[in-house]
Amino acid sequence: MDFTITEDQATLTQGVRDYLAGVHTPELLRALDASDSRRSDAVWQGLTEMGLPGLLVPEAQDGLGLSLLDAVLIAAELGRAGVAEPLADTALVAAPLLAKAGGQDALLAAIAAGKAKVALQHPVNPWVADLDGASHILSVKDEALLLADHGGTAELLDSVDPLRRLYAPVAPTGTEVGSADTLLDHAALIASAQLVGIADAMLEQATDYAKNRSQFGQPIGSFQAIKHHLATAVVKIEFAKPVIQRAAVALQKNAASASVHVSHAKIAAADAAWAMSETAIQTHGAMGYTYEVDLHFWMKRAWALSSAWGDRAFHLARIDAAVIGGALPIGPGHSFA
């Protein structure tokens, strides 16, 4: 029993954080917002050179063969930096699913090389993110997960998040590579991890603002009203993190209870991020209500991911069945059931 991340994991996470802080700046987000495609070949190229697409690709296909625990740590960094490129979907959700399915060596090698992008379609979402530009699509038909090549264009939907690229779903087709539930669990886990990274970014922005904005002759961050709002948000964020890590370990091991723990993670992360978004805008005052401060990029991503891959009702229903329904052992001694 050991609930720590390794030094290697901490080093990798810090390396990704430092890299993204240097290149994936708020200025870049604004430039992407002003572009037609909202995507950047240069950014994707940089992420590829960092080796990020291959993190969960097996070593035999030139990846690093890392685990879902590594994936949630990296996903949080993608959320923190506001990364909109479809890296999380392709590298952190599709890659481990395809590796588990087997027989997809060529595609996995192409993912590791940054040459393949996999869009994820599931009936729980009324949209598909980044379908345009995807080389492959995973979709669901009768509980089966199907893999197909993808090309051509699709009907664009309009998201409040200016950097999300959403498309109408297409007819599911392709080769069976798993079950619908495994896609949902993996994607919900990675969305949860991005949400805590997004929450951390909003916390940092609000804290900086509170330190620098003065009213009544002193920084507003010296007032308890502001301090207590922010402290309450920190508690929610910090207590979501171990839930996500615990869910990652359960899913990595294909534990029978993994879905319940993923749902717990999704609810905890979404609640933390949503609460943080409201605290952050309140701390910024009228500035927070503008398009001129950076906060809105993260706030809108938080709204989007909170309800993507299963909204609160969906995940509560799974916990209801397990906990109130009695399928999951609960109580002292069952922390890791």
Binding site: S222, I226, K227, L230, A231
Partner: peptide, 14 residues
């Protein structure tokens, strides 16, 4: 406790 969090973890002014 919230004061401690704000001042020591977030570095807000006392």
């Amino acid at each position: 406790q919230r004061n401690i969090i704000a001042e020591r973890l977030l570095g807000l002014p006392r």
